[in-house]
Every structure is written in C-alpha cells, then in structure tokens.
Simulated assay, not measured.
Amino acid sequence: MIELDDGCRVFVQNTALRLASLENSQRIMNGRPVNPDEIYFRCQPKLEATVPQWDWLSESQFIGTGRRAPDGVYLSFHRVL
C-alpha cells in the first residue's frame, strides 16, 4: 500500500524478478551496497486506487525497475501507453 500526496491509498501487487551473482547476493544480505548495473531487477506492478480520480491506475499496464540499497528497496514504475 502506498499513500499519494492527496491522501489516496493505492494497493500495489508487484510481481518481480531479481537476478544477482552469489557475491552480490551476499553483499545485499549483509547490508552492503551493490552496483545496480550488476543486478537484473524488473517488475510488473498492478495498482488499485481507492478513489475514482485515480481509476486510471487500475486501467493501465505498468512495468518497472528496482534497486536494493542498504536502507531499502527503490522502485520506479512506468506506464505502458
């Protein structure tokens, strides 16, 4: 679940594929930074908003990329037109 600036909550169901070498996987598990160019991290989020003005989120297809950092996971979603 994410909350938008206007207070609308959006449910996110995200299917992802992340591929990393054993060395990089161990670095991630130990909380150490990894060069994101060395990790394949792609996703396909399905979004569902709680208010009508954001219905287009449920009616659109998205793809995304991600990176894992020591302080969290960062995702970027892109709408497919």
Rank of each mutant, 00 (worst) to 15 (best):
S60R: 05
L75C: 02
W54D: 07
D5C: 04
E59L: 11
M1F: 11
E48I: 07
P33G: 04
G31A: 04
R18G: 04
S25C: 09
K46E: 14
R18Y: 00
F62W: 08
R67G: 00
G31P: 02
R42P: 00
T50S: 10
Q44K: 05
I2L: 10
V34C: 02
R67W: 01
F77Q: 03
R79D: 04
V10A: 02
L47G: 06
S76T: 15
L81F: 05
F41Q: 01
R79L: 06
A49C: 07
G7M: 12
G31N: 01
G31M: 01
G64K: 01
P36S: 13
F62N: 00
N14E: 12
N24Y: 11
P70Q: 01
A49L: 05
Y40G: 02
P33N: 02
D55I: 01
Y40L: 15
T50H: 14
Y74P: 04
N24C: 11
Y74Q: 04
R68C: 03
T15W: 09
L75V: 03
P33L: 01
R9N: 08
Q13E: 15
P36L: 08
L19R: 15
L4M: 10
C43W: 02
T65N: 02
A49P: 00
P52K: 03
I39M: 03
D55W: 07
I2M: 08
R18M: 04
N30G: 09
D71C: 12
L19M: 13
E38P: 00
G64A: 08
Q13F: 15
D71R: 14
C43T: 03
S21I: 00
V80T: 02
L19P: 06
I39R: 03
L22C: 13
I28V: 12
V73H: 08
S76L: 07
V73L: 15
D37A: 14
E59F: 07
D37G: 08
L81W: 07
Y40A: 11
D6M: 05
S25W: 11
R32T: 10
C43P: 00
N30T: 15
Y40Q: 08
F77A: 05
L17E: 15
P70F: 05
Q44R: 06
N14L: 14
I28R: 11
N35K: 14
F77S: 01
E48M: 14
L81A: 14
Q53A: 08
S25F: 08
R27D: 09
Y74N: 03
R9H: 13
R67L: 02
V34A: 06
E3S: 05
G64V: 00
H78Q: 15
Q44S: 11
N30C: 12
R32P: 03
C8P: 00
S60N: 15
N35I: 00
R42C: 00
I63P: 04
N14G: 09
A69P: 07
S25Q: 13
V10G: 04
Q26W: 15
D55V: 10
L17A: 13
R42Q: 06
C43Y: 03
D5W: 01
I39Y: 01
E23N: 10
F62P: 02
N14F: 11
A16Y: 10
P33W: 07
N30D: 13
I63Q: 14
